[in-house]
Nucleic acid binder design. Structure first.
Lengths: 197, 197
DNA sequence: TGCCTCATTGACACTCGGTGCCAGTTTGGC
DNA sequence: GCCAAACTGGCACCGAGTGTCAATGAGGCA
């Protein structure tokens, strides 16, 4: 019962958004590692301690959405009819993320920063690992493997490979300055992996 | 000129090995995150500061070898005749790592720790990412792609997928308590990814 | 044997990310 | 207008990692 988004939740969200945008500005301006949390907090006008009530880690400012995006991909994946094969289904599902790219210029800057900052890169991999666990059950189902059969490496391997393809495509996309289309690069990566020309 | 392994280098190596073994003992005993560097240092009878002259990070104690193993795999990969396709060649090359497993019991414990400790897991993935850059040139050659053509996501995708398969296989191997053969699991993962049966 | 040199070492101080705790303040509900 | 619950800021604290510097110890050389 009651409204889902209480007044409190909304103002909290507003603060969250503002901190994010301020921090992002600092990151893009002077680099991720060169920006300290004290700086972010004081710029945002909050205490250092309060910052950690909004974000668990510094990396979460950049990657915070990634966790929820994982849920999004999972939802999209389960929308795909169960007759569709794993690869095709994953292709569909991963397109859900694609739809979020708002400003391509900013996206490019963030992506460049991510590929160039070790701690960010490693955290993003961790998040992708989490995607893997989210998507695996569905793929396992598509392969006709029992829910509780954890002895088959196939589902994990397929999901991990698909994500690896996305990653490889992303890297080329960044290196190319965003000239190519990410979806096209992804398809090319997948067909290379699967052997089909 | 002169002997490669000076007396000094050798004693340093001995100290390195001893610290590693002491730290590993503590890790396996009380967990990675529960073990502090101060504890390692004092147990090993060195100062905290000296510890960081042997290891850049805490994770490097566990994963230090992984970097050099990457070189090993690269060397093994380049041994494989250039007529052999990328997947088969990678299969051969990755077996080079397999040969290092000395004590299967200890290997199992370390692997379990690695898959169960977030920071270790992400660091190990980072190292694997480094493998990727090492192995890509050879695979690019095998695919008949020009050295300077970086616009094709294929080589990176294939290498990353192969490593992802190894990772997925490793996870299942650990979960299964080492009952299955890692090489077999890897093969199964790869064939699942490539669509063959 | 004694000296010179240079790498290694330990100690101290410091930065930065992250957490636990507590007391004060704001906010929503009644 | 009051009460309880949640938010806030400040403080102390921990652990990882780095810079600096003085002391020490071993090897080379006369």
């Amino acid at each position: 019962m009651g409204v889902e988004t209480s007044l409190w939740q909304r103002s909290r969200q507003a603060a969250y958004d503002e901190i994010t945008s301020i921090a992002m500005g600092l990151f893009l301006d002077q680099g991720f590692e060169q920006t300290t949390i004290d700086q972010i907090a004081s710029t945002a006008g909050i205490s250092r301690r309060s910052f950690f009530r909004y974000f668990g880690t510094k990396e979460d400012i950049v990657l915070g959405d990634l966790a929820s995006q994982g849920e999004l991909v999972r939802a999209a994946l389960e929308e795909v009819p169960s007759t569709v094969g794993p690869w095709e289904a994953l292709r569909e599902a991963l397109h859900a993320v694609d739809a979020l790219a708002i400003d391509p210029d900013v996206t490019m800057k963030i992506a460049t920063m991510m590929y160039g900052t070790p701690s960010l890169r490693s955290r993003s991999i961790e998040k992708h690992l989490h995607w893997q666990t989210l998507l695996m059950p569905d793929i396992r189902r598509r392969l006709g493997i029992a829910e509780d059969d954890l002895a088959d490496p196939a589902p994990g391997a397929i999901v991990a490979s698909a994500i690896a393809c996305l990653d490889a495509a992303g890297e080329v996309w960044v290196r190319g300055g965003g000239r190519d289309d990410l979806a096209t690069l992804y398809d090319r990566a997948v067909s290379a992996v699967r052997g089909r020309s």
